[in-house]
Write a protein that binds this DNA or RNA. Structure first.
Lengths: 352, 352
DNA sequence: CTGTTAGCGCCTTCAC
DNA sequence: GTGAAGGCGCTAACAG
């Protein structure tokens, strides 16, 4: 015995019952520890009698295998890391749920890392991952860990299975689960044009973001398909947040000639933008039509309800988790999975 | 050597570089493994020269301690479990962020369990916790794990530090971080009454929920303070979701005599309710005033913007994480922490 | 201040 | 079908 051992971490008199170990079960069932282990992992290789005794002993002792020991031995953690840029963003919560439920069914736990734009956090989680605390990772942040600034010996290369979700990672040879952002943005743009709108503004995502690049392309595709000119003055900078929508709205309100429709590349921005328009006495859709992207919960109950692009968020999460599990269990996975979006027509957009 | 070892988990030719172990570092730095360990854990107990050599060797090898081995030895996981009833609920995301950032600073990781109303999931996570995969847990779901249905040998008692957040757990002798729901609800009720409203409806949370019980008490307190009678016909059932608000709205719309104000115990319900009122041609606040609770992001940009009770969500998360960390590190923590709420007056409520 | 040593609990080969 | 034994990588006692 080395340390004092157990107990007293929580001062309120925690009961110093030592958790049952495999030895305890073995003794009680009158078998070796190897048999206990096998009874759990490969029951068919253990005689029915022994198995029954083991199971009974497990029930009696309340034995739960020690995961640290198991991991140390088997090199498997049954944990998956989910890396996302902003946990507080509504858009991710339902995706997370899709991921979590799929992982759970397969016996994996989920560790979340909220990068929050901090490079040091990213470095931390890269180390975390390299240290083998997780078997795999789902990346929602649009790039690989640290992009290994080379030099410096071996920068702890990450060799576990990875999957990219939503924000595709161009160069990476990993499964990518996403929607067709370009096609969806084009679809919305054509929808607006088909209603007679000719001056259509576009509120962008963050510069250099892959979603933004694709949606912007789609916007231009849509203009072209509708025979409308591209006017840089109608491009407003944004970053998918409510506040960005508010700012874009202020810009619009201040103009003498306004667009007749605004395509916001997130519902948050659309809602923030509408708010600003209302405050200035403008009506949606009578004075100006507003469209969103994502179809978050609030899109349907906004006033007016929001015309937008529906993303199957839960299914995206599930698909990403499934792809990762496939990899984790030695199966292969398609390199690219694209889920369908849908144009949802509500009340915030009207014919000109 | 037993197994084949390393490599080939990910089929795409993962490089079979074995991660550096403490031994490798020790050899390179020409010290014992114990010294390496100490250089990391208690640098002040190692000579500066040795420390420098160790650090250099670590940099050269890219060494990252194996957490499974560390956990096995030290019985510490540096992981915290966060148990919540519904990950997809907007209300939790900012709280999670508060928790995560505080844990992160203290070197702890966060594992999320979305209970999703499933008892089997709860049992799973109870076992998970009992198995020692986490050092502590933050409970947002209003009750202790499984409430240990006794009998059956030792049902793997959970003895790690726990903290309850938002939903207090009455009998439990653990730190509870919350707001004063009763006082806040009373405050809002009195605010409505002070504007001349005498028929105030109340849209509830789920029956038996502790938040609901407290807020309902507060509502009655407020009525009493304002000298208004309590009318059971003005209590509408809800569960904090948008849909519940929609349903409550339908109920209201169908009535011949309506309340002049509605106090919804969540912003989601308030937004859903307003939507239904609009669809029926009613105006807010001209025809009917609507108040919410929580002050989620969308409350400020709803149309009309929502009068509500502000909860410091991020701070709640931070406070819970801090309390847990105190416990984890052997310090004590106050048994009850109550953060201040604020009445936020916007446009959805008007004088009668 | 530093090295030696002994496990943490489990899984898995090897021998029977 | 089963048991004995070694070791996954680390840290904490104990000597020095």
């Amino acid at each position: 015995m080395d340390e004092a051992g157990q107990g007293d971490r929580a001062e309120q008199g925690a009961i110093p019952i030592r958790a049952a170990r495999i030895q305890d079960v073995a003794k009680l069932a009158d078998v070796s520890t190897a048999t206990v282990s096998r009874a759990l992992a490969t029951p068919e290789r253990v005689s029915p009698e022994a198995r029954a005794r083991v199971l009974e002993a497990i029930a009696k002792t309340g034995y739960v295998p020690n995961p640290a020991a198991r991991t140390l031995r088997s090199q498997k953690t049954y944990m998956v890391l989910v890396v996302l840029p902003d946990l507080a963003n509504t858009f991710f919560s339902k995706i997370l749920r899709g991921i979590e439920e799929t992982l759970f069914e397969a016996g994996y736990g989920m560790i979340i890392s909220d990068l929050d734009g901090s490079p040091e956090k990213e470095a931390h989680f890269a180390a975390f991952t390299a240290a083998g605390r997780v078997d795999g990772a789902v990346l929602l942040n649009g790039h690989l860990f640290g992009q290994s600034r080379e030099g410096e010996g071996q920068p702890a290369r990450i060799t576990i299975p990875l999957v990219a979700l939503c924000e595709a990672i161009p160069g990476a040879d990993i499964p990518q689960i996403e929607i067709d952002n370009r096609a969806a943005a084009s679809r919305m743009t054509r929808h607006l044009a088909s209603l007679g709108h000719r001056r259509i503004a576009y509120v962008s995502g963050p510069a250099n973001n892959i979603l933004e690049r694709e949606r912007f392309q789609g916007f231009k595709d849509g203009l072209e398909a509708a025979g409308l000119p591209y006017d840089p003055a109608l491009i407003l900078p944004g970053d998918y947040t409510i506040e960005a929508g508010v700012r874009a709205g202020q810009d619009l309100v201040a103009r003498s000639t306004r667009p007749t429709a605004v395509f916001c590349t997130s519902d948050e921005m659309a809602i923030g933008l509408m708010r600003t328009l209302f405050s200035a006495g403008l009506r949606v859709p009578e004075d100006i039509s507003v469209a969103g992207f994502d179809d978050i919960e609030f899109a349907a109950v906004a006033e007016p309800s929001l015309t937008t692009i529906h993303q199957p968020r839960r299914e995206l999460g599930q698909a990403a988790a499934s792809a990762l599990i496939d990899l984790l269990q030695g199966r292969s996975s398609p390199k690219r999975i694209r889920l369908e979006t849908e144009l949802v027509i509500r009340d915030s957009v009207a014919p000109l």
